[in-house]
């Protein structure tokens, strides 16, 4: 790991400063970082700080495509220190109650898939693991999750974990819908 990601990870983020640095993000991710239930913008509140830092630096380095957000996360807008500050602020925000849900019809099938293929990394309750950069996938908006697992399968999310790509690579569209349906309704564990 090199460069600004390392700098941001080692820096001691300041949540008070982060609240200010997060302002240009609020127009999309909302003031409480709850995202949109439509899934157009993901929930960030309560996500692991390390995950937030990795995704922010990946997006601005072009390792993860995000043309809508790019002009707002460029290094002319936020410094590596501010990335650490934003992560400190956002990771401590409460997880919102209103989460965009799937049809509900895939939950049973999704549960099996998740236990078999995903829980080793993302945790049984979808809580993720900060030290390993495994995102919390519980209580995330359904449409966002569905879009991401498709990106991961089809190679459009280039910063993905190769082991995960291997597993998800075998999934049909129905499998992806089911596993996203299941993850969206998982209740985020209390910290």
């Amino acid at each position: 790991m090199r460069g600004e990601k390392l700098i941001a990870l080692q820096a001691r983020g300041d949540a008070l400063r982060g609240e200010i640095s997060f302002e240009p993000c609020q127009g999309c991710h909302r003031i409480d970082a709850s995202g949109r239930t439509s899934g157009s913008y993901p929930r960030l509140a309560g996500q692991h700080g390390t995950v937030l830092i990795k995704q922010m630096t990946d997006i601005r380095a072009g390792r993860r495509n995000n043309p809508k957000m790019e002009p707002f996360i460029g290094d002319h807008v936020v410094s590596p220190m501010e990335i650490a500050d934003i992560a400190a602020y956002v990771s401590n925000l409460p997880i919102p109650k209103e989460i965009g849900q799937g049809p509900g019809t895939g939950i049973a099938h999704g549960k099996d898939l998740f236990a078999k293929d995903c829980a080793t990394c993302h945790g049984e309750r979808g809580e993720g693991k900060g030290e390993k950069f495994y995102p919390m996938v519980a209580a995330q908006h359904y449409r966002y999750l569905l879009r991401e697992v498709k990106f991961i399968r089809d190679g459009d999310r280039r910063n993905s974990n190769p082991e995960m790509v291997k597993v998800i690579g075998q999934y049909s569209d129905e499998d992806l819908e089911a596993v996203a349906d299941f993850m969206a309704q998982l209740v985020a564990p209390k910290k």
């Binding site: 127009g27 999309c28 949109r36 707002f72």
Partner: peptide, 24 residues
């Protein structure tokens, strides 16, 4: 804002009721 075009909501920066704040 507009989710399709990626137009952020003005409220995010210019605050509720457009009262502004800091650089906004």
């Amino acid at each position: 804002g507009n989710e399709n075009s990626g137009l952020p909501a003005c409220i995010g920066c210019h605050q509720p009721e457009a009262v502004g704040h800091g650089v906004y």
